[in-house]
Design a protein around this nucleic acid. Structure first.
Length: 244
DNA sequence: AAGTACTCCAACCGCGACGGA
DNA sequence: TTCCGTCGCGGTTGGAGTACT
């Protein structure tokens, strides 16, 4: 699943991180922080570039990072935000607690993109029970994945009527239920200090329930506040005991 | 059972933005 | 104002695991 370790011409290690490297990086950052990523690997004694360390920290080692399946609520938020923001993965990540931009991006491309195409177009051959392989078997003249994708897209936009299909219903999303208003803009100002108390007392941060779409609408902005601060490393260091 | 095709995701790469000298 | 170093973002790739033939 991951690239095997290797070294470039400067002796910088690339590829998958070992558990030992993870522990070294984590220990170093927890102790000294990461004011300068370039210096981190040198100071920590890692044969990695600063970029690689940053990526590893942000996507995997950082506290509060969640792994595993996305909830339907998270998927709905991603789809909705993608409608509003486009491929602004980092902006989306600030609104999904514990999810990295990379993880959101991957999940979008592997799971959600096709689903939204189906929703937009209502039905696609795949939604109609035709797998890519089956489709390819029936169209052996298609040589590349791109050709298949293009034809599937064309078919999904033209061929299938919108009225029928239990398949489309089975994968339907009520994104509009969680719609963000058109004039929604991220807020980055200092939240009222009472907000913290209210939010922390009302929500279990580790469960992610704070981002439940139930009653989302007007709360999204304040939730964005919260997450911007939760995911800010400096704040985390000062409040980490709240979550650990 | 073996070979092939496909999926998924961690990690890499390139580039633009930004800040300091 | 310009240059340079660093950071962060988004696109892309590599390859292990899984599904299919």
């Amino acid at each position: 699943m991951v690239r095997g370790p290797c070294y470039d011409k400067h002796g910088v290690k690339k590829g998958a991180w070992s558990e030992e490297e993870d522990n070294t990086l984590r220990a170093h950052i927890e102790k000294y922080g990461h004011s300068n990523w370039r210096e981190v690997p040198k100071l920590a004694g890692l044969s990695r570039c600063g970029k690689s360390c940053r990526l590893r920290w942000m996507n995997y080692l950082r506290p509060n990072v969640k792994h595993g399946n996305f909830t339907k609520e998270e998927e709905d938020i991603i789809i909705n935000l993608h409608n509003k923001l486009g491929n602004k993965w980092s902006a989306m990540a600030t609104r999904l607690p514990g999810r990295s931009d990379n993880e959101i991006k991957n999940h979008w491309h592997s799971h959600l993109k096709n689903r939204t195409i189906r929703n937009d177009r209502v039905r696609s051959p795949e939604a109609d029970g035709v797998t890519r392989k089956g489709f390819l078997a029936k169209n052996p003249n298609l040589k590349t994945q791109q050709e298949v994708d293009v034809l599937l897209a064309v078919l999904s936009s033209n061929q299938f009527p919108s009225s029928s299909s239990s398949a489309s219903e089975s994968c339907s999303l009520s994104v509009s239920d969680y719609a963000v208003s058109d004039d929604f803009t991220p807020q980055f100002c200092e939240p009222d200090s009472n907000l913290w108390n209210e939010i922390l007392s009302a929500n279990d941060m580790s469960s992610g329930t704070i981002f439940s779409p139930v009653g989302l609408s007007d709360d999204l902005t304040s939730q964005a506040y919260l997450h911007d601060y939760v995911m800010d490393d400096e704040l985390f260091w000062s409040t980490s005991d709240l979550y650990m």
